[in-house]
Design a protein around this nucleic acid. Structure first.
Lengths: 179, 179
DNA sequence: CATAATGACCGTATGAAATTCAGCATCAAC
DNA sequence: GTTGATGCTGAATTTCATACGGTCATTATG
């Protein structure tokens, strides 16, 4: 069925895996999603309706999560980028985590394997705003310490690329992939 | 003029700053850039051509960098996310940095203020591919050490939000913003 | 082997949306 | 008051998305 339980959208029904043409399409749309289906079809060797059909399927299957405008952080007065480690007492989707996700300055929240900490990516207007955010984070129940790494400059920032990952030999000390 | 020297696209001509209506538009387009100008106009209180004009301006000024399909990393076989610190001998856009940016697994490259290191965000298919990437990074000239933080799970991952950053009081020990 | 069913595609047609354009209101500078 | 710039509206036009019917290749089935 094409349903969802408990509010979490799951992998839709016939999520046939992404083939070479699909990857080409994704590659084009990651660069520019405003392209017409006619041009997209030209780029990947399909008629406009066929290209359209593919894209619809990629949307339905969830391979294309959304189509979004990519905003320049400077234009919206958030030029200061920092990564923040917050040490936490425990794991998981605790209430304090929800509080952290409420801050609009917080772009990403990851939990790190093998450590009781969360890694945040935050953007603020200036160091003062960052300082304020860090204070609030430090006062959050469950947060035992914070360390922040201010980014001096960013050399590369690109979306997930649909290209094929090259195969590389397994290091000798690893017999099996753990993941 | 609306020019660029030395290949770096600079802030275009009359990059008049983003007003409240523009921020509303950006907020809508970050969520869903497939919306029609008619609907967009409804949402922000403008006629379709006026909304269109605004969006064109935001594109020209660079506030909207691009419009992109957001891809599910799992769909393109890159479910493993990790942050990698590479310690480097020096700073800046050195040749080895260029080499690092060639790897398709590397999504972001940041230099960290106050440290001779780079912070990378990488996505791979599995731990084997990550291990291979780390080996290659370690063998890169200029890289003296690598530390990787594998992400166990991600709780939040959202684009730059055009909302207004709340003002917070300056901590008592800081008289002036440094940035 | 023959036949039916399925899936992916193409070409065409039509309705919807993007885009252009002329005209009007507002505001600042002179 | 006049002029020019800016940003909007509504109508007109053109482009594009999208639905539909038909074809072909592949695969399952009698």
């Amino acid at each position: 069925m094409d349903e969802e339980t408990d509010g979490i959208p799951r992998n839709r029904s016939a999520a046939r895996d992404v083939d070479a043409t699909d990857r080409k399409i994704l590659g084009v749309l990651v660069d520019d999603a405003t392209i017409s289906y006619a041009d997209l079809g030209d780029r990947v060797g399909l008629s406009p309706p066929a290209a359209h059909e593919r894209v619809k399927r990629l949307r339905r299957s969830g391979a294309i999560r959304s189509t979004a405008a990519i905003i320049d952080p400077k234009a919206v007065k958030k030029p200061l980028l920092a990564f923040v480690h917050i040490d936490t007492k425990g794991w998981g989707k605790t209430p304090e985590l929800m509080a952290v996700s409420e801050y609009p300055e917080v772009e990403e929240i990851h939990s790190v394997a093998g450590d009781t900490c969360m890694l945040l990516k935050v953007r603020t207007e200036d160091t003062r705003a960052l300082e304020g955010l860090l204070s609030r984070l430090y006062e959050t129940p469950g947060v035992t310490s914070t360390r922040s790494y201010v980014v001096l400059s960013t050399y590369l920032e690109r979306p997930v690329q649909p290209g094929i990952t090259t195969e590389w030999p397994t290091p000798r000390h690893m017999a099996q992939p753990l993941y």
